[in-house]
Simulated assay, not measured.
Amino acid sequence: MAKKYTADEVIEMILDVSSSLFVSKGYEKTSIQDIVKGLDGLSRGAIYHHFESKQAIINGVVRRFVPTEEELDNIAAAKGLSGLEKIQKLLIDAMFNQKRSETLGSSYELLNDAIFFSLYITTMTEILSPYIEMFIEEGHVDGSVSAPFPRQIAEVIIMLISTWFINALYPNTAETFWEKLSACQYVLKQCGVDVLSKEVLQTIMSNVESKVKEYEDKSN
């Protein structure tokens, strides 16, 4: 008898299996039947109950890369944070959220796929840009941000942080990674939104070093 799964478990299973197949076969070469074969006795009907198409599935996979609405709303409602600090908190969470990293696993390889990458950029912009724009406007009020053109600067921040550091597009060494961070810091500071302050750079450095050590420990 097939194991009983909750609706959330079924959705996560479908997204996990689909992510793995999209990495190994590519999105276009993966069929719904391929996904069905990877599920634990679940039927094609179970997939269509939650996702109306393969496009809806890849949209769900992409959405895993972005902070949830609950996470974003919690940052927006945080007391005692300036507009700039909210942007910084959003970016650090987007980069180093432990639960999201564990869920994504090898899915980061999907960023090498042109279709997936296009959806990733569109989704990041559609979801994060309004929040960053709002935080920039809050920063105008509290004095933490002086950037003009809030909407456009929000998009610039997303483009720099979520695109320029993707290794598949712009290969990095440890040295060039930190050089890029310094360049981003300079550009954003000139724009009037000092997102990558010394404190934030130190947080990023600590998190990266921790990730490297974790990877090395697993490799040994």
Rank of each mutant, 00 (worst) to 15 (best):
A77Y: 02
G80Y: 12
L81F: 14
L81P: 09
L81M: 15
S82G: 03
G83W: 01
G83A: 10
L84M: 07
L84R: 06
L84Q: 08
L84C: 05
E85P: 03
K86F: 05
K86N: 01
I87D: 03
Q88C: 03
K89T: 15
L90H: 05
L91I: 13
I92W: 00
I92N: 02
D93M: 14
D93I: 08
A94L: 08
F96R: 07
F96T: 02
N97R: 01
N97L: 04
Q98H: 06
Q98G: 06
K99L: 12
R100E: 04
R100M: 09
S101W: 02
S101E: 07
S107F: 01
E109Y: 02
L110Y: 00
L110F: 00
N112D: 07
I115D: 14
F116A: 00
F116R: 00
F117R: 14
S118W: 02
L119C: 04
Y120P: 00
T123E: 11
M124C: 12
M124S: 01
T125C: 02
T125G: 06
L128I: 05
S129V: 07
Y131R: 06
Y131T: 04
F135R: 07
I136S: 12
E138Y: 10
G139I: 02
H140N: 12
V141M: 13
V141S: 13
V141L: 13
D142I: 12
D142H: 10
D142W: 08
S144P: 11
S146P: 09
P148R: 15
F149S: 09
R151E: 15
A154Y: 09
A154C: 08
A154L: 05
A154D: 09
E155N: 15
I157V: 15
I158D: 00
L160S: 11
L160V: 15
L160H: 11
L160Q: 11
I161H: 04
S162I: 01
T163C: 12
W164I: 09
N167H: 11
A168N: 02
A168F: 04
L169N: 04
L169I: 11
Y170W: 05
Y170T: 12
N172I: 04
T173G: 05
A174C: 01
A174F: 06
E175S: 08
T176H: 00
E179F: 04
K180S: 13
K180H: 07
K180A: 12
L181H: 11
S182V: 11
S182H: 10
A183I: 13
C184P: 00
Q185M: 06
V187F: 14
V187A: 12
V187H: 11
V187M: 11
L188R: 03
K189S: 14
K189A: 14
Q190L: 15
Q190Y: 10
Q190H: 13
C191I: 11
V193E: 07
V193C: 15
V193Q: 10
V193A: 14
V195M: 06
V195K: 04
L196S: 07
L196R: 05
S197R: 08
K198T: 12
K198V: 10
E199K: 13
E199N: 12
L201T: 09
L201H: 01
Q202H: 11
Q202W: 04
Q202P: 01
T203W: 01
M205Y: 15
N207E: 15
V208L: 08
E209M: 10
E209V: 08
S210H: 10
S210M: 08
S210R: 13
S210N: 09
S210E: 11
K211R: 07
V212L: 08
K213H: 06
E214I: 03
Y215Q: 05
Y215E: 05
E216G: 00
D217C: 03
D217V: 08
